[in-house]
């Protein structure tokens, strides 16, 4: 039997772990918004593809490394498909059309998976089911630890790319002003797919980690997580990579800590209420920061 402070500490750790998933999804959202001003609604679908294909490939007996790799490839491909047939086609046309198209992709992906694998909740035969490490008496599951480490590492790498390479400078130029970026010779059509590739990889990775850790997947698993991811991104400031990470962890911890004391409905009202207030009063997010995104869809 654990003592009260230990229980609280354990819940805090669990919150961080759940938050790392939100953080990865939030980073995916913030990438397309920050650079392209595009709210990519297909992200819940790509998250689900990552999770579902982890289950599908594990079931067929492939080794774990290959399973993760294949799930990530599928997620990235699904994201690039969205780029090809929504964003690229519609640059410069009516401003909410890419958003609408990405909603179409969400529904398409969910229902295609449903058609071929059914709508039941499937149990993932995760090799990590009973494996965890214990640090100072706190139980930490391995995929989640990996998720947290990956989220922070990838955010670090991403900021280095954004500020240290020519591709990153191109990305930031697009975020500042797409038209002059084109005039300055930034290869928009070469760089935009890179954004979608990264965004898809982050999302699919979150889906894989979710499947391995919580061992339950179904065709609509992405929606709840993505809604939290969007909230995390807004709280952290749209377009800010570190803001998304901090926002994700914050929501994860708040969710786990408050569910035991308030119930999940109350948490929803609080999270979305906070989201609404931030959007109206402080659109740059809680932590100020320099959001790349501006007011456009």
């Amino acid at each position: 039997m654990k003592s009260e402070p230990m229980l609280l500490a354990q819940q805090f750790v669990n919150g961080l772990m759940l938050g790392s998933i939100y953080a990865l999804v939030a980073v995916a959202f913030t990438l397309t918004i920050g650079v392209l001003n595009f709210l990519n609604f297909s992200i819940p679908g790509i998250f689900m593809l990552g999770g579902m294909f982890t289950w599908i490939f594990l079931k067929s007996g492939l080794p774990l490394g290959l399973v993760v790799l294949l799930a990530l490839v599928i997620g990235a491909a699904a994201s690039l498909l969205v780029e090809r047939s929504s964003y690229r086609q519609m640059m410069g046309s009516d401003h909410f059309i890419p958003l609408v198209s990405s909603m179409g992709f969400l529904i398409l992906y969910e229902n295609l998976v449903l058609i071929f694998w059914g709508s039941d909740i499937q149990v993932v035969n995760s090799p990590f089911r009973d494996v965890s490490v214990t640090v100072f008496g706190l139980i930490i599951s391995i995929p989640q630890l990996a998720g947290l480490a990956l989220a922070v590492t990838m955010a670090y790498v991403l900021t280095r790319i954004l500020y240290g390479t020519s591709t990153g400078r191109g990305l930031r130029a697009i975020a500042e002003n797409p038209d002059s970026a084109i005039m300055l010779g930034v290869h928009v059509f070469r760089i935009v797919p890179v954004v979608f590739l990264f965004s898809g990889l982050f999302t699919a990775l979150a889906g894989v980690i979710f499947a391995l850790n919580y061992t339950q997947v179904h065709p609509f698993m992405g929606e709840e997580v993505a809604l939290k991811g969007i909230s995390a991104m807004v709280i952290g400031g749209m377009g800010s990579v570190w803001g998304a990470i901090v926002g994700g962890l914050l929501i994860g911890v708040a969710e786990i800590l408050s569910i035991s004391s308030f119930g999940s409905d109350f948490v929803d009202i609080a999270v979305y209420g906070l989201l609404l207030v931030i959007l109206v009063i402080r659109p740059e997010g809680l932590f100020g920061g320099s959001a790349l995104g501006r007011e456009r869809l």
Partner: peptide
């Protein structure tokens, strides 16, 4: 007062709040 993505997200949050409130 918000526009574009901000408006879409704000109305989205509002819808979620209404549904969650009724749930209680």
């Amino acid at each position: 007062r918000t526009r574009g993505i901000y408006l879409a997200l704000a109305t989205f949050a509002l819808g979620q709040i209404v549904a969650a409130a009724i749930l209680n």
